[in-house]
Amino acid sequence: MEPASQVILQCEHLSRSFRRPDGSMYQVLGDVSFSVHENEFLVLFGPGQCGKTTLLKLLAGLDRPDGGTVKMNGQPVAAPAPSRGVVYQTTALFPWMTVMGNVSFGPLAQGLSKEESRRRAQYFIDLVGLHGFENHYPNQLSGGMQQRVGIARAYCSNPQVLLMDEPFGHLDAQTRYMMEEELVRIWQEEKRTVIFVTNNIEEALYLADRLILLTDCPAVIRREYPIRLARPRDYVDPEFLHLRQEISRQMDPAQ
């Protein structure tokens, strides 16, 4: 599938360093530039723990780069805004709110009426398969269900871009496969631009329209792969395995 032509998010020469406790600096993000097209499923894939979450925070507007710019629809990104929704690795659900409270938080915050907010929240709660759990608190749900709430909450404020930071990283393997399948289903039903960070190659290949391979510290783009496999994808399809092998070889720092 060719990505739609319209560029929605663009970043140029992004870099970011942090200060260690001893005062020295370490760079987590090198010089990263790429564009994201409308309704594209872009996966930022890389080994290790370095740079990917930082990059996503910069795209969200939750952090500022040391150098470079992020533009959304041509406008510079300077602060958090509901046009970009975030799904967090740790879910970051509001524990004192029910599922309904969490999912309807976005529309309420944006000034929609209570009825309208609830109606929209209900739609996305149903979409992620949590019908009947509206009045549960997050601590009453399993990890997979919590992440479904996270996805519904991000969707419900109607963002143009969804930023997902290893949302299935904490789940067990079986739940993870199921959630990946679910995410593709949800995304096909409610198309949005998705930028998805992961360090799991299977997950990356299962989800991506396009895969950007990042290096470890400082993260820079090593290569880009368009992934043209038909959906739903099969983890043991020869083409899938071939790509997996090729990208894994690229990841090897000895190469």
Binding site: G61, A81, A92, F94, W96, A109, Q110, S157
Partner: peptide, 29 residues
Amino acid sequence: VDPQLIGAAQMLGASRLRIFTKIIFPSAV
């Protein structure tokens, strides 16, 4: 208060007042 929750509320478009009443206060309860 978990700063990530404040970030999440900001991303969802919450005003400072809403962040106070819906995030900071309940978190302190």
